[in-house]
């Protein structure tokens, strides 16, 4: 009887020890996980309208390059990034904004007005005026930005 009672006490202590261990483990573990995965849980930064410049700068029928700088916050460091966008309009009202990054391997494309083509120097890829693949290895047309015009200023959605 006595012996059994003692055993019960030991059993309880053993159980309590494990329980406390579990509590402490959770006390460390749960915050640790939250802490570690925090960067992944962070919401993707909201896309913002980036001002490119005056819409009147765009020549009719010729892709025009706009360069603008945006601030990017990574961790505790703020960097400036350059965004380059080709804007094309045929009628001065409807604009198409294309990224200047080749969809093949990410080189920068250039508008060659003599040949009416976006030329990528890395693998001799060519894109037509509207961004469609004209020649070479790219898998898809140039990426397009959502674009709007307000008070004569062009904006693209990005970030």
């Amino acid at each position: 009887m006595n012996d059994k009672k003692k055993l019960d006490r030991r059993g309880f202590l053993g159980f309590a020890t494990w329980a406390i261990g579990g509590i402490i483990g959770a006390g460390f573990g749960i915050p640790a996980i939250a802490y570690i995965i925090a960067p992944a849980m962070r919401k993707e930064e909201e896309q913002e309208w980036i001002r490119l410049g005056s819409a009147s700068k765009v020549e009719l029928g010729t892709p025009t390059l706009f360069k603008t700088k945006i601030e990017k916050q990574t961790g505790w460091i703020t960097n400036e990034e350059e965004v380059s966008v080709y804007v094309l309009t045929e009628n001065g009202r409807d604009f198409v904004a294309m990224s200047n990054i080749c969809t093949h391997l990410g080189c920068r494309v250039r508008w060659i007005s003599d040949q009416d083509v976006f030329f990528c120097p890395c693998h001799n890829a060519g894109f037509a005026k509207n961004g469609d693949v004209a020649s070479g290895p790219p898998p898809r047309p140039l990426d397009q930005y959502q674009v709007k015009e307000e008070d004569g200023q062009l904006f693209v959605l990005g970030g």
Binding site: A32, A38, G75, W76
Partner: peptide, 20 residues
Amino acid sequence: DHAYDSVQYITTQIPMGWLI
């Protein structure tokens, strides 16, 4: 350059960073 900023980042920006 970064020590102070990163500590501040841990303390104020990272969830549970203040606890750790």
